[in-house]
Design a protein around this nucleic acid. Structure first.
Lengths: 215, 215, 215, 215
DNA sequence: CATGAATGAGGCTTCATTCAT
DNA sequence: TATGAATGAAGCCTCATTCAT
């Protein structure tokens, strides 16, 4: 009996914590980290200012939590989307597709990760860099695998991975900031072609390639 | 009337103005715009807080001046480097080379432009975005020219320009933040190859081109 | 939800607001508006500087509130004192009596309204001028009424009203500043006589008035 | 030789000092004491900020000088205007006429004395009060003389003097602030009548003039 | 003497965080 | 736990005054 109640209470607490995070994501996406006061976050979450500090030790803890979560979300999403594929190029494409899908779906996430938060505070900035690096690392792993398979012309996989990620980043930011290019989905395939060429994808002599590539 | 507005004094004043800008570039590069107080800038420039306001009407005027200057510096630099070339691809490459050279030379400029950039203050942010867009626009113009000449396979020159700029940006940022890749110059040529392939550079009719480009 | 916006708490808040106003009235009366810092007001009210801004949006809002309140207080007071009378001269006298009574009772009010008044801040000053003009206007209305009744010799009721108000003002200020004349009440009747003569009060039909009034 | 040069230099210095005062009177009249910076005064006087401090030890010394001068000017003016008359009422009227003439002539003087400066700073305020009191004192002396002559009905000459001065002050301030009443000269005679009645001036029938006046 | 750049205390205001209820 | 009033450090900016030239 007591146990269950405890559980229910824990749930409630977790629920309110989630609500604060949700509100903060909204507000940060709109106003930037520094431009947002705890009071504003609290109001959006429909709690009192002081209550905020029952759930987070301070403002930085909140943004850390948010970015950590976004990180996990992103990686989780990518992982799931990749799970279907075995071919290196397919996995690569799936990764990027996952990013874009998530960014489209979770606009605030994208805005915070790519636009609102960077350049704020070094301690915190590190986290964003970590995310970016992780993405580059994943990409590089894919490229290394492909290289081993002899399916890539390009040499330096780190630089390639950076270029790969950077090109996507630029297009997404443009879209977030100014809605340009208008159709992200279309841009995406153009971009993918661009990068595959850039990577030096070798034509797949074998017929079996036909079916595999674009699926 | 012993005190005269001699050239020497005028020079000194201009010199102090430059010194403030120099100090501010340093501090902004380290701490971001919002994270930097006028007091800190003044201390770095070795002047009193009030003195700052003799040279700039307020904090925003300072950052505007800085970003404007960086903008000019960058464009000027690019323009000069391009002046030597007539071929589209050469000009494209010269542009990027100019960026990288300048960024290597003026570390703070790069940090402010690329790292401390976004999510800060809309007025200020707008200027940075403008710079980025200008660079993309310049790139796109080169691509359009090349396309007209039938020397590109790629279709959407806007997306291509974004990818192009974005890939460079990513590599430069990595280098700024973590010194990785270590040798920016080497990375640069790799990157250039990557993007030329990405753009779909066609072999230049003349046989001598054959070997180099895509292999 | 242990903390409740009970009536007691609301009372306390209103009480603190009043306390700030009280403190501000004191300090303004001593030091003038411009010579008074929010910090000083806060200290006098025994709150932190920041707390002030929970009750007033800024310094100007405070002074506006104070002057508005004083205005209302004064007019209310005058209105009440006049309510008893129907005769024009009686009402006139009642008005002035009301002013003097209130000024004696609320020393700070008088000091702010009459001494710390002018030359300070146009927005604020305007309000004080408004009060003065309102008093002159009220007086003029009384005089116009009396004139219509043929009970006044004097011609220009505006100048008369100004003279009337100005003479009272001067005496009150003297008393506020230097305690001279010592007995304001006695001075008041002298002053009233002075002004009634000045206005050209006609003997009231009955002959007995003859000798006294104008000779 | 040296002597003359010194004199000429002294003259020059005094001349610049006058120029600063002139400028300050202008600016103070426009902006109030607290609202005026030394820089503004200096600019108006066409000198450098630092130069100001060669002529006045600080801002307060300037305003003190100005008010002292205005005081002297006013008293001098009054004295001169009164010199022509021997009759008490005439002298009284001459005093007020002098004030008004001077205020009309020297608008800045009036604005500073009556509008801009009071309520600024206690130390300084004292000086203005002194001026006002002096004027009241002079008036009271006239009234006392008239009273001794049996030409006044009114009793308390201090209150009368205050009322007298106060009524003029009010009208002048109204005119300075809002240009109301429009014609100060006309208002002046109305006002004089008002106050003469208020003072209880006895009618000067024919011969009895002789007898009454001096009684 | 003159200049105007330099100084820094001090004013207003915001906001992350604490605390009494 | 929840509340929101209270706190005070810190930021931006002004301006009387000083000082090197």
């Amino acid at each position: 009996m007591v146990y269950r109640q405890t559980n229910r209470i824990k749930e409630k607490i977790e629920c309110k914590r989630r609500e604060i995070i949700r509100a903060a994501r909204e507000v940060f996406a709109e106003n930037s980290y520094q431009g947002t006061s705890i009071k504003t976050v609290a109001q959006r979450a429909k709690i009192a200012t002081g209550t905020f500090y029952l759930y987070f030790s301070n403002k930085e803890a909140l943004i850390n939590t948010i970015v950590d979560e976004m990180f996990s979300e992103l990686l989780e999403y990518i992982k799931n989307e990749r799970a279907v594929y075995t071919d290196g190029f397919d996995k690569l494409q799936a990764s990027m597709e996952a990013c874009i899908k998530l960014f489209i779906k979770e606009n605030n996430l994208a805005k915070i990760l790519l636009i609102q938060v960077p350049g704020v505070n070094n301690a915190f900035n590190a986290k964003l860099i970590e995310i970016e690096n992780e993405l580059i690392k994943l990409t590089k792993e894919d490229l290394d695998e492909l290289k081993v398979q002899g399916r890539l012309t390009g040499e330096d996989t780190l630089v390639s991975a950076m270029a790969f990620v950077g090109s996507f980043r630029q297009v997404i930011i443009g879209w977030l900031r100014e809605g340009r290019p208008e159709k992200l989905n279309e841009a995406f395939s153009t971009l993918m072609q661009y990068n595959l060429r850039g990577l030096g994808k070798k034509p797949n002599h074998n017929r079996q390639e036909n079916g595999e590539d674009e699926r």
